[in-house]
Design a protein around this nucleic acid. Sequence first.
DNA 1: AACTTCGGTCCACATAATGGAACCTTAAAT
DNA 2: ATTTAAGGTTCCATTATGTGGACCGAAGTT
Lengths: 280, 280
Amino acid sequence: MATAQTSEDAKGNGTGGTVGKALEVMDLVASFGRPVRFSELHTQSAYPKATLYRLVQTLLSQRMLAFDADRQTYAPGIRLVRLAHAAWAMSSLAPIARPHIDLLSADVRETVHVAQLDGAQVLYVEKRNAVDPIEMYSQAGKVGPAYCTGVGKVMLAYLDPNDAQSVIAQQSFHRFTDATLCSADALEQELIDIRQHGYGFDREEHEPGIICVAMPIKSANGRVMGALSVTSSTARTNLAALEALVPRLRETANAISEELQNWRFPDGTRSNQQRKAKEG
Amino acid sequence: MATAQTSEDAKGNGTGGTVGKALEVMDLVASFGRPVRFSELHTQSAYPKATLYRLVQTLLSQRMLAFDADRQTYAPGIRLVRLAHAAWAMSSLAPIARPHIDLLSADVRETVHVAQLDGAQVLYVEKRNAVDPIEMYSQAGKVGPAYCTGVGKVMLAYLDPNDAQSVIAQQSFHRFTDATLCSADALEQELIDIRQHGYGFDREEHEPGIICVAMPIKSANGRVMGALSVTSSTARTNLAALEALVPRLRETANAISEELQNWRFPDGTRSNQQRKAKEG
DNA sequence: AACTTCGGTCCACATAATGGAACCTTAAAT
DNA sequence: ATTTAAGGTTCCATTATGTGGACCGAAGTT
């Protein structure tokens, strides 16, 4: 139920094995955001033509990529959607968080997000929008930067220091707005601040006019599992008003944490370690 | 934009390369439907312990699997959710179909599904439920059998004969209900019938009391891209009433087909312009 | 016809995967 | 405290896989 990385591995590598290379190609295809021709991939890839070709063919035969014979283009295959369904259902906070953020969202009448870390980026796994409640993959599955979003910053603040260091090192620190924290130093200062309060804000750091208040979701033993946030705009409200929602947010985060703990999958997944942890 | 397999490949293999083996492990993990221990995987896998271990480690380092240190269990990783977002957005009918099935669903006030073939199974990529409109990954991403669902049968009926043959050969023909078509022969008979009418039914073949009418969604050149269906129950309606919806369904399917064509990047080279135009 | 671009194939060679066996580590049994 | 067992991890000689420069052929272009 989490981003593994138990700190000592630190080899946030990408390559090495064939599988890694194949996944690099997957990412490449996905990064285009539209179906691509082989030659387009070739120009963007470090791999020689024959190698890239074989990788693409492998992926194709595994239905990880789909080929449009008419247009001669490749796109990520729907086999992924199926696997992702499993990932979303068992590996994300979403199924557990859902009823809680339904309540929260109905209560505060603002957009609520649940996010987790995927590598060095924030991945949104669930969203409730008070005004337009129907959203699908188009929202869950989206990624964003960790250093300038409310959810990203609170997760970083409570991450194991080694992991946090590694994630911070991978941030791009692009200046989206005047308020964006553009250096590791500025960010770390902010993280200290977040740890003191127990929650964090996005002060128009990612998008002008967009503000949010965020709260970490932790497991029983204190590991950050994700974060949730309430987002609004400066046109409608202000930081002080959002701060007033903190108790409600904390309540929701705690409820999710707790349920996370009790959560058992159909067949008993209870481990001895868990039993112990619960007693202690 | 589709299940590739342009008929001449036919090697619906699973193994061969390392990538295939790794994906086999992914499927295995996903098939449990809950986080699993290494030993559980080992008992279910043909691979020797060391090999399986290395595959799992590779997948883990690629964040395709996530490891829960507390429970010592593996689950599909959230990197998948991110890749799947790309797959869903560019490789599925869902983004195009969405507005159309919104209309259809509001109109007929019944559950509407959009599905595509993923290998030999039906994969639902979008759903609208008139009474309870909030659904997420929990629905999109689900899979079902091809031989006893409305959408599955209409897709088979219009598939290239070679591909259809291969898919039919992979069906399990489990008898879910008295009405289930339990043999390739019975199914092929049904497919002929579907081709004659241009649409198909699910006559409680998968679940007692659940019926549907389904219609293929084809591309300009006649290839099946997917299917859509209106589902209801025998308690509320009957097949004749569903059949009366056929014109409305055809209209929707045609609208999707057409938009599919226009949305298609006419030539790889022009795609950016088109995108720009859409944004502006 | 000569040239270019693009997708696809070959094959000697290098790398990465394999898996049996040995080895830790934790927990339960004696 | 000592033994046993089971789950999990590492080693390394062997072998299967993947690599990529060169080459092919079709479809356009000049």
